[in-house]
Design a protein around this nucleic acid. Structure first.
Lengths: 131, 131
DNA sequence: CTTGACCTTCCAGTGACTGGAAGCCCTATC
DNA sequence: GATAGGGCTTCCAGTCACTGGAAGGTCAAG
């Protein structure tokens, strides 16, 4: 199967698949004309990667997960450890963004947003620090 | 004031300040020895940038906000528009991350995490699509 | 006079792609 | 057989907002 079809199956653009090959995540065969030829296993691995990325795992986490996926004697504890670490990072990002949102939402709410220059948003950003 | 002190005041590393000068966000004077010399206004602007960045505004949003900040006849509506746009993006990121967290949290919860290979996390990532 | 902490510039790397150029390959139609 | 189009290949550059490091100038203290 050619790269476009493989991409359609896995839910990834061709460019991304070439990149994944570049960094050694997949190693499709080549046809005699030089075209990449994707086997069912390749598609399966690409789909795995696509889903793991959609869950926000970094490429290096994906690499580790894929290796564990292919190692039929792995310990599930190792997988769980990676997932838990990633989960903690997601939680932290959510907390950070929520804090930003609360602050910004408050400021936006305070700004009347008309053609006058008074603006609590800018006032707050530019304020000297206070206790 | 030299770059390190300016950075300490504004809460930014010297490298970042040099970068901000590179891209035209600040334009500190130079001493005769070539060192950057930061005025109170420079510090103020850097602090403004530091806070806006901490709220997750992009550099280009910061550039726009800083211009509005310095324009004493601006309309607050313009500021509010930028802030609201940014707020919407934050909300979206929070929603995306929350969805990821829920999925991942569920999977982590299902994985017993011992030395056996059975792992619902990998099973899910590798599953053929189902209805 | 030397040491060490600053400062300067410039170049390269980060993560995970993405866009684009230049050129080969394949199929279909005229 | 020529040609048009689409898809494939490689490679280079750009994204965003820095960050690290090298090479070298400057300054205050001892």
């Amino acid at each position: 199967m050619n790269i476009s079809d493989a991409g359609a199956r896995a839910g990834l653009p061709p460019k991304t698949i070439r990149y994944y090959e570049d960094i050694g995540l997949v190693t499709p065969d080549r046809d005699t004309n030089g075209y990449r030829s994707f086997s069912d296993v390749d598609i399966h691995n690409l789909t795995f990667l696509s889903r793991a990325r959609a869950l926000g795992f970094t490429i290096e986490e994906c690499r580790a997960l894929l290796a564990l996926y292919q190692d039929k004697s792995r310990a599930s504890a190792e997988v769980k450890k990676i997932a838990e670490g990633h989960l903690a990072e997601i939680e932290k990002k959510i907390a950070d963004l929520t804090s930003m949102r609360d602050t910004l939402s408050h400021l936006v709410h305070c700004c009347h947003g008309d053609d006058r220059p008074d603006c609590p948003i800018l006032a707050d950003l530019g304020a000297s620090e206070k206790a």
